[in-house]
Design a protein around this nucleic acid. Structure first.
Length: 485
RNA sequence: GGCCCGAUGGUCAAGCGGUCAAGACAUCGCCCUUUCACGGCGGUAACCCGGGUUCGAUUCCCGGUCGGGUCACCA
């Protein structure tokens, strides 16, 4: 593999849904690679068999594909540093840990779980900080270690961390961070079963895969010193760290996987456009230089700069997502909108209507595709409505004036040759002029008569046009009956 | 609790010693208009608190408060 090339990875655990926080991390990792003409790698970290969820890996694949985060190396397509599924890499980690033992940077620990438990209990009783291993096996004589090993005593391998001094690292987002080594624990590298812990596997894999920029959530900030100590113990080059602030549900809680709209697939199922979701996620904790905030993936790659990642947690705002989604919908061409909207329209409408015209009317009135059926509920079935709906101050209409207007309209429309939006409107307009009334006086009641609602996609003449002549006249007559009481 | 990180309108955020403190979303008003939208124009609304440093702090330093993260043979 070429040196000096930027290599980033997205390394999710297949433990369920992909929520927007994960997706954002993937996006940032992708952008960091692509902005630098680098390589984006997908690695599946499936070593926790207990938490594996059936189908979760496919969700990861599908989500990345749908959102355009195409990986250059990964489980399905391979690459020079595979395998890319962590469970298939298990064999090698122990050797690496043993190298560290030889170098004096790690050691065998024969402490039993019982002793550890007792240790913690004692620490607690003494009012000490609970949790840190006491280094019991840290300086065991070599003969003793050999004897225990030969006897087949169960053991783990622990990292030998310095107990004094300071370990520091630099993060692209958070800057220079220092931690007292006394805070560090001799963490376990290899478990009793011979398998690596996540932290250890992660460091070794990242190095072996040539990862140059580690992009992950800020929850890893406090374990990063231990990662660095590991890199140093091996004599490996440190990656650049880019830690991202968490995505919050509200001021107190992180976004929870289980809560509906947090997951990518749920958002799409609700009628959010993939690109809109990505665009919103981009802006959640990152800001562009200028005022523009709508970007295609290609544009994101161009303008990406990790220095603009914010340090503070960001609350997921579904209202803003809506607004961005609406913006994307509006930017669709008529044809494109028809294509994405049609399935949603067909959910609600089972009558023959002018689909093209209906979608035209819908286009600017739809922020999320999922709300289309609700907007069109009047088409199949005329709802019950209150005659007071005909009263509108601004249009100067009342149930009484509506009777007058609809009577006139019935006459106009029944004599109309061409049933098109323009023809209908022109005819109505002419009638309004003849009656010396404003268009609204005549047409506002038409919309009510045809839909039973005062908020509809399109005005009276447009509804008439897409409903068709027959249904329009039928509803007009029904409305007249209703008005006459 | 120890350690780490953070704090600008309701939300996302720009800012990086001197600004009338950007912008977007939301909200309110007006215009356009066959409803509702779209679009256009305008308004309301913010630097967590206390000390320093400085001629001058939103910006730098210290303390506090609040919030988040982390302290596993989980990942």
């Amino acid at each position: 593999m070429a040196t000096n090339q930027v290599r980033t990875r997205f390394a999710p655990s297949p433990t369920g849904y992909m929520h927007v926080g994960n997706l954002r991390t993937a996006l940032y990792a992708y952008l960091q690679a692509k902005h630098n003409d680098g390589t984006f790698i997908l690695r599946i970290e499936d070593t926790d068999q207990g938490r594996l969820v059936e189908g979760a890996t496919d969700i990861i694949y599908n989500t990345c594909r749908q959102t355009g985060l195409i990986w250059d190396e990964g489980p399905d397509i391979g690459g020079p540093v595979g395998p890319y599924i962590q469970s298939q890499r298990m064999g090698m980690f122990k050797e690496y840990a043993e190298k560290l033992v030889e170098a004096g940077k790690a050691y065998y620990c024969f402490c039993t779980p019982e002793r550890l438990e007792q240790l913690h209990a004692d620490q607690k009783a003494a009012g000490e900080a609970v949790g840190h291993y006491d280094g019991h096996c840290r300086n065991l004589p070599k003969e003793e270690v050999d004897r225990l090993l030969a006897a087949g005593t169960p053991y783990v391998i622990r990292q030998k961390c310095p107990t004094e001094g300071v370990t520091s690292f630099d993060d692209l987002v958070y800057g220079h961070i220092e931690v007292n080594n006394s805070e560090l624990e001799d963490q376990i590298l290899i478990k009793t079963d011979g398998m690596p812990t996540y932290n250890f596997a992660n460091v070794v894999d990242d190095h072996l895969m040539g990862i140059t920029h580690v992009i992950r959530g800020s929850e890893y900030l406090s374990s990063t010193p231990k990662y660095n100590l590991l890199y140093q113990a091996f004599g490996w080059d440190l990656p650049v760290y880019i830690h991202c602030p968490p995505v919050m549900k509200d001021a107190q809680n992180k976004l929870s996987k289980r809560n509906g709209d947090a997951s990518y697939q749920d958002l799409v199922a609700k009628g959010y456009l993939s690109q809109a979701v990505m665009n919103y996620i981009l802006l959640l904790g990152w800001s562009p230089k200028g005022e523009e905030e709508i970007f295609s993936l290609e544009e994101m790659i161009k303008i990406w700069d990790p220095a603009n990642i914010s340090k503070s947690p960001a609350i997921f705002d579904s209202l803003k997502l809506r607004a961005i989604n609406a913006e994307y919908i509006r930017r669709l061409s008529e044809e494109e909108f028809l294509e994405v909207a049609k399935p949603w329209v067909e959910q609600a409408v089972h009558r023959p209507v002018d689909m093209a015209l209906l979608c035209q009317c819908l286009h600017n009135r739809c922020e999320v595709l999922g709300e289309i059926p609700e907007q069109l509920d009047f088409i199949d079935q005329m709802p019950d409505y209150d005659l007071e709906l005909y009263r509108n101050k601004k249009q100067k209409t009342t149930p009484e004036s509506a009777l007058e207007a609809l009577t006139a309209l019935e006459e106009v429309l029944s004599g109309l040759d061409s049933w098109t939006k323009d023809a209908i409107f022109e005819a109505c307009k002419a009638k309004a002029e003849a009656l010396e009334k404003k268009n609204g006086w005549l047409l506002y009641p038409l919309g009510i008569a045809l839909s039973g609602k005062n908020r509809t996609p399109g005005g009276g003449t447009e509804i008439a046009a897409y409903l068709g002549r027959e249904l329009t006249m039928e509803r007009l007559k029904a409305a007249l009956e209703k008005l006459k009481g």
